[in-house]
Design a protein around this nucleic acid. Structure first.
Length: 540
RNA sequence: GCCCCUGUAGCUCAGCGGAUAGAGCAGUUGCCUUCUAAGCAAUUGGUCGUAGGUUCGAUUCCUACCGGGGGCGCCA
């Protein structure tokens, strides 16, 4: 926020005043965890002491007594603490000012930034093969990808989300075989798809006895199904990109020819290999099998060439399941071989999740037909719970989800805790209208009446949202928004409990001030809920 | 064997270079004549896997080891 920046600037000026011209990266201003350490604190003196050969406390003391520091807006006091921290305490006016900025920004501008500078960034996720219904295992990070996209957009990136449709190759043939077998009343072949959905599809298939055609039919149906499952989670892709279309357009052959032409390939055992080790991979990779077919990798290379060179994305983020870890090095090597800086390709790996229901451990395996469909989970616990749950922990952690736990719709569930905060805000607004309380102009509201610890704490949390969103974007960690929402809800409920807005005992001026705070809070919570794709209910 | 992720309260997880490590659930206990108690408050519970190292400062960074998950196909 503004004050933090002002303090950092003041410290920079203080250092210049003391003749210590140093780069800004040593100036750290943070918010201490403990109130006795002030509103803001800096450890510059600690970091600098060695470089300038002075002891940290003396240095801190010198910095603290400069004119630059004394000119910090709203400054109440400066204290030295610990090994050399400088703690700044500000008058509460800095919070009131910050609240007014939130109101001025409104839902559209608050916590929006230009960090991304309109960089064209493509985000590919889910991309589950259309061989069956969307299941929990490969859709768990769908909410992560979608929320990351929303966060990046809010930070000024030009984001395009995409689902890569694997509608060709062996799995689709197997799917076609399974479908035809079911139609003739037989069991699916060894290694085929045994799920009940294949039987249903077979009933509706009246096409020829052709594996490819049957497979394509089934894939198309499955994909439509998957699309609907994702819609239930409020996940919509800008683009559904077909692998078959890439192959049919000749782009794969073209891409491989380019690699061949520049001498990045060689032939061995009747196959065409990419000299991937030259570009950082652990081993070389086959591009064209000895039977003449292209490998999956070949298609993927063409696809990524398309992303970078045909469609011109400056940055590409792929979200894969950890079981696709093996593809990372080869894809990056191939991209490098095509002359694209491999750092422009970011591959995020979502670790495997396991689903637990009481003592029963559920395994995901599509072919065995023993899968937990995303639809089932959404029906069981509701879309908001699924979205919040999958964003509650980092994608680097192999988490386990207890369906029984998630099913509890009582006060236990964090989603309701958060949504309830919004419902209470909406309720205050309803009652205000019922009672005909008229809102005065913003510049007439005596914001400085907001002095209750609950009020101040709520403002403190509220005005932190912009930096949380930026951090979520930079670190590709949309779950940070969830953490913020929990804190926000906690602060709001505390405020609600201790600071009645519309009670008869509340003086009219304070009513206005609190109503302003409530509308600021509403802006914050709506923005944050929007970023994680969870509805903001008017009542519960 | 090599590569990636991970080990924090009884459980599920935050925190990831700052000063006395947090939340939810579970346990114990208070608070509804008020804008919704799907709430608030208090309280119990931790060798931050182990051992070294870097640093003024390490749960956070580095190394090794131990435990857990995933990967190392002319499958996708």
């Amino acid at each position: 926020m503004k004050s933090e920046r002002q303090i950092a600037e003041a410290i920079a000026a203080a250092l210049r005043e003391l003749g210590l011209e140093l780069s800004d990266d040593v100036i750290k201003v943070e918010k201490p965890a403990r109130p006795e350490h002030g509103d803001f604190a800096s450890s510059v003196a600690l970091g600098l002491s060695k470089r300038v050969g002075r002891n940290p406390r003396d240095l801190a003391s010198q910095i603290a007594s400069t004119a630059a520091i004394s000119e910090i807006p709203h400054l109440a006091s400066v204290e030295l603490a610990g090994p050399g921290f400088i703690n700044f305490r500000l008058e509460n006016g800095y919070l009131h000012e910050a609240l007014l900025e939130v109101i001025e920004d409104g839902e559209d501008k608050f916590a929006r930034s230009t960090l991304g500078a309109d960089e064209k960034i493509q985000l590919e996720f889910v991309s589950a093969n259309p061989t069956g219904p969307l299941h929990v295992g490969n859709a768990w990070y769908a909410s992560f990808g979608d929320s990351l996209g929303r966060v990046l957009s809010r930070c000024g990136y030009d984001v395009s989300t995409e689902y890569y449709v694997n509608d060709t190759g062996g799995q689709i043939r197997t799917l076609g075989e399974s479908l035809l077998a079911r139609r003739s009343g037989d069991a699916p072949p060894e290694g085929g798809y045994r799920g009940e959905y294949v039987v249903e599809l077979a009933k509706r298939y009246d096409g020829p006895e052709d594996i490819t055609i049957a497979g394509r039919f089934a894939a198309k149906e499955n994909l439509e199904n998957i699309r609907q499952s994702l819609e239930k989670l409020d996940i919509h892709f800008d683009e559904w990109y077909s692998q078959a279309s890439i192959e049919e357009s000749g782009a794969v052959a073209e891409t491989i020819a380019i690699l061949e032409g520049q001498g990045s390939t060689y032939e061995k055992d009747g196959a065409l290999w990419l000299d991937a080790t030259r570009f950082g991979d652990t081993r070389d990779r086959v591009l064209k099998k000895s039977n003449g077919d292209f490998t999956y990798l070949a298609g993927d290379i063409a696809y990524h060439r398309n992303k970078f060179l045909v469609r011109g994305f400056q940055r590409v983020i792929d979200i894969f399941g950890a079981d696709h870890h093996g593809q990372v090095a080869s894809l990056k090597a191939a991209v490098a071989a095509l002359g694209i800086d491999p750092d422009r390709l970011e591959i995020l790996l979502g670790q495997m999740v396991s689903l637990v229901e009481g003592d029963r451990k559920v395994k995901f395996s599509k072919r065995a037909g023993d899968v937990v469909a995303m639809d089932w989970l959404v029906d069981q616990v509701g879309a908001p719970v699924v979205r919040l749950l999958s964003l509650s922990s980092s994608i680097d952690r192999a988490s386990s989800i207890d369906v029984e736990e998630a099913r509890k719709t009582s006060m236990d569930n964090p989603v309701y805790y958060i949504q309830y905060a919004h419902a209470r805000i909406a309720s205050i607004e309803r009652v205000r209208q019922e009672r005909g309380i008229v809102l005065v102009d913003v510049d007439q509201v005596p914001v400085d009446l907001l002095q209750h610890p609950r009020e101040l704490e709520l403002i403190r949390t509220l005005v932190r949202l912009p930096e949380v969103v930026e951090a979520a974007a930079k670190e590709r960690a949309p779950q940070k928004v969830v953490t913020w929402l929990r804190e926000f809800a906690s602060d709001f409920h505390g405020f609600y409990h201790d600071c009645p807005v519309l009670a008869e005992s509340t003086p009219p001026d304070l009513v206005q001030a609190r109503l302003l705070l409530v509308s600021g809070a509403q802006i914050g919570v709506r923005v944050a809920l929007g970023l994680i794709g969870v509805a903001a209910p008017e009542q519960m």
